[in-house]
Amino acid sequence: MTTPLPRRLAAEAVGTAVLAAVLVGSGIRATGLSQDGGVRLLANVLASVLALAVLIALLSPVSGAHLNPLVSAAAWWTERRSGTGLTGRELAGYVLAQLAGATAGVGVANAMFERPFVELSGQERAAGHLWLAEGVATGVLILLVFGLLRSDRGRYAPVAVAAWIGAACWGTSSGSFANPALTLGRALSDTYTGIAPGSVPAFVLAQAAGAAVGLAVVTALFGRARHLAPDDARELLAHPAGR
């Protein structure tokens, strides 16, 4: 039986909040403990990917553990004609829950380290190579999630998604935000992991473009989504996330 929508939305909000709190909090902690940029990045990435893997494994049976508006949008898009995936109303609820969770999680991280609950970031991140990096990081994330699902290997998502995000944090110039909710949340913390509010729209547009390309590549490599029976579709969507 499908998990009631309120419980699914609660899972998305709580999961995104915890992920945001660990992401920002570990960045603050790393900055306080080391002046070495490589050590800071290593600590921040390690904490974030461990949290991501645990949250996907924990919350997948409840909401699918999307924790990312673009994963939710892609899930809706791929099953929009079958009547077995997210509805438009559910998609809107997922996105709002993720945005609220990211905002709350960042605020809690700020407060845990004796900073203002809301503190707008001053870190400008506006350049073509950063937008390209965001597109690549997000596109491969979508390719990974939905490629695993279409090849019936969704059970590997917790490890595979966390591994890709960790690799992309090191392998892209932007640090692989790859998640509009967390990107917006990070604008509310003037710390190591922050992004200036004025830089957010371009990052989100680049992420959306990357997600669209990622879905196109999924279709090219794995074919179009199968139209599943409702019970099968719910199981399929119980394994999709991003940092």
Results as ranks from 00 to 15, higher is better:
Pro61Asp: 08
Val39Glu: 15
Ala74Cys: 10
Val45Tyr: 00
Ser34Thr: 14
Arg89Gln: 13
Glu79Cys: 09
Ser34Met: 04
Leu33Val: 13
Asn68His: 07
Ala13Gln: 00
Leu91Arg: 06
Leu23Ile: 10
Ala30Asn: 02
Leu50Thr: 14
Ala57Glu: 15
Ser26Gln: 03
Leu59Cys: 01
Asn68Pro: 01
Glu79Asn: 13
Val14Lys: 04
Ala92Asp: 02
Thr31Glu: 15
Trp77Gly: 13
Gly32Pro: 02
Arg80Thr: 01
Ala57Lys: 15
Asp36Tyr: 01
Gly83Ala: 05
Arg81Asn: 14
Ala73Glu: 04
Leu41Cys: 02
Leu67Tyr: 10
Val22Lys: 01
Ser63Glu: 11
Ala73Trp: 13
Ala30Cys: 06
Leu70Pro: 05
Gly38His: 08
Pro69Ser: 07
Val49Thr: 12
Asp36Met: 02
Ala75Ser: 15
Thr31Asp: 15
Glu12Arg: 08
Ile28Phe: 03
Arg29Pro: 00
Thr84Ser: 12
Ala92Leu: 15
Ala30Ser: 12
Leu41Ala: 10
Leu59Glu: 03
Ala75Trp: 05
Ser48Val: 10
Trp76Met: 07
Ala53Lys: 00
Leu70Asp: 09
Ile56Ser: 10
Arg89Glu: 11
Ala11Phe: 01
Thr78Val: 13
Ser26Asn: 05
Ala20Tyr: 03
Ile56Lys: 09
Ala13Gly: 06
Gly64Ser: 12
Ala53Ser: 13
Trp77Cys: 13
Leu58Asn: 01
Ser60Val: 06
Leu50Trp: 14
Gly37His: 12
Gly85Met: 04
Leu86Ser: 09
Val54Gly: 09
Gln35Thr: 14
Ala43Gly: 12
Ser48Lys: 06
Gly93Pro: 10
Gly32Lys: 02
Arg29Gln: 14
Glu12Asn: 04
Leu86Cys: 05
Val39Phe: 05
Asn68Ala: 01
Glu79Tyr: 14
Val14Asp: 00
Ser60Asn: 05
Glu12Pro: 04
